[in-house]
């Protein structure tokens, strides 16, 4: 990684929703002009960032909301010139695992769980695909790929935290069922994004418990960033992660971007 940094500054543009806050908060905590990495954050709630179009290597807003976001997050620019970045990162943006876990409460593929309704692997994949195909990340990846051939990295949401698995409704899920649900949803995400030549970065195993959920130490103290304010998530929130998790994500991204640049 250090050899990369000696070459030239690495410029990455990160798109995300509320799940971008973990990394952004961490980055703001550690950033200094001496670091050989520039990160530009484009954040928008829910599906707002899908309102973009690709023209001549640039992303243009298709509505006033995104125009406002570009304006405030790109120092007044009315478009995002993809040539100014070495790579792009999509974080969260609807790629989540809760639906797979909820499905796993009732359904199981053969051999993955007793007492639940059998469903074929193909049907389960199709169900996950049906759900995830509307994720903002899929639309943004497609548009982005229409504007640039530079690397695009995708980080789905983290698995929900340990607290989530302790809720009464989910206690029935054992580690095998959780891992199966994770793999099925991850495979569906990979299949949906494959046409756009992106690299999907799986959650670092070190951040997950033995039964597959995210360790509580990575979710405690998560915040929502609203303007200059850090607003803590409610205590019962189990999907948003904290800056420590953001640090893990940053390491994954820089490793992947470094590898991609070494190859190119």
């Amino acid at each position: 990684m250090m050899s990369l940094f000696r070459k030239k500054r690495l410029r990455l543009c990160l798109f995300g929703d509320s799940h971008l806050a973990a990394l952004k908060r961490h980055w703001l905590d550690i950033a200094s002009p001496d670091r050989p990495v520039d990160l530009t954050f484009i954040a928008g709630v829910r599906d707002t960032l899908t309102m973009i179009e690709a023209r001549a290597g640039c992303l243009h807003p298709r509505d006033r909301v995104v125009a406002g976001q570009f304006n405030s997050q790109l120092d007044g620019a009315d478009r995002l010139d993809t040539r100014q970045f070495d790579g792009f990162v999509l974080i969260g943006l609807g790629l989540r695992f809760q639906t797979a876990l909820a499905t796993a409460l009732t359904f199981a593929v053969h051999g993955a769980g007793e007492g639940r309704r059998l469903v074929s692997a193909a049907a389960m994949r199709a169900a996950m695909r049906d759900y995830l195909q509307h994720a903002a990340a899929v639309s943004i990846a497609e548009t982005l790929r229409g504007a640039t051939d530079r690397p695009i990295f995708v980080l789905p949401q983290a698995m929900p935290s340990e607290r989530f698995a302790k809720r009464a409704a989910y206690r029935a899920l054992d580690g095998n069922a959780i891992e199966t649900a994770y793999r099925e949803a991850f495979a569906a995400i990979a299949a949906l994004l494959d046409p756009f030549g992106v690299e999907i970065l799986a959650q670092d195993p070190e951040t997950r418990t033995e039964n597959g959920m995210t360790r509580d130490i990575y979710s405690a103290g998560s915040v929502r960033m609203i303007g200059d304010l850090d607003v803590p998530h409610e205590a019962r929130d189990h999907t948003h992660m904290n800056p420590d998790y953001g640090a893990v994500q940053l390491r994954q991204i820089l490793d992947a971007a470094s590898a991609a640049r070494a190859i190119s």
């Binding site: 909820a102 499905t103 009732t106 309704r117 193909a122 049907a123 389960m124 169900a127 049906d130």
Partner: peptide, 16 residues
């Protein structure tokens, strides 16, 4: 008696 996984769209459900 054999409903589909909730995430499935009706078209996919019918296909299965």
């Amino acid at each position: 008696k054999e409903p589909p996984p909730g995430a499935m769209t009706p078209d996919t459900a019918a296909r299965f």
